[in-house]
Amino acid sequence: MQPGDLIASDLGARAAAPGDLDQAWQVLGRVMDPEVPVVSVVELGIVRALAWDAGHLHVVVTPTYSGCPATEVIEADIRQALEDAGFRAPQLERQLHPAWTTDWITSTGRERLLAYGIAPPLGSANKRSLLGDNGSVNCPQCGSAHTELLSQFGSTACKALYRCCDCREPFDYFKCI
């Protein structure tokens, strides 16, 4: 912690008002994932809990992957959005347990991924799904089930690279983890 942080957090403390948490959830619902900018951090299941604690909003976030380089950016975006909405010096807590799973991506989140051209995770996460035993991944462009895996990793750790054998378009699949 830097000396300036202390001053800022001292200034912002106030008692919780009714509707604070609802408003904060709404604000966070507009903070988009930097790598998939159509899905919010709430829809991705990255924001685990909100509470009012010692005069400040307390936000529990969880990283998607241990080494996700977007973790710091996401936390900075969350902090900025809350500050902009009038929540002074929100306290962020990074929580690893329970481990994030694609099962936490909401149904709206899944629809948005599909509309963006990313095939959403298939079924629920377990050891079999990690070993690639989860049925066929449908092409987000033409809907064909006739697709093939090109690489187990796509542009980011959370995605795998596929190709549609009918329309020939390559696409990302959001891995089930």
Binding site: P63, Y65, S66, L96, H97, P98, A99, W100, T101, A125, K127, L130, L131, A157, I177
Partner: peptide, 11 residues
Amino acid sequence: GIAAKAVKEVT
């Protein structure tokens, strides 16, 4: 907690 997260990645 750390292991439960890493075990999925390492699988």
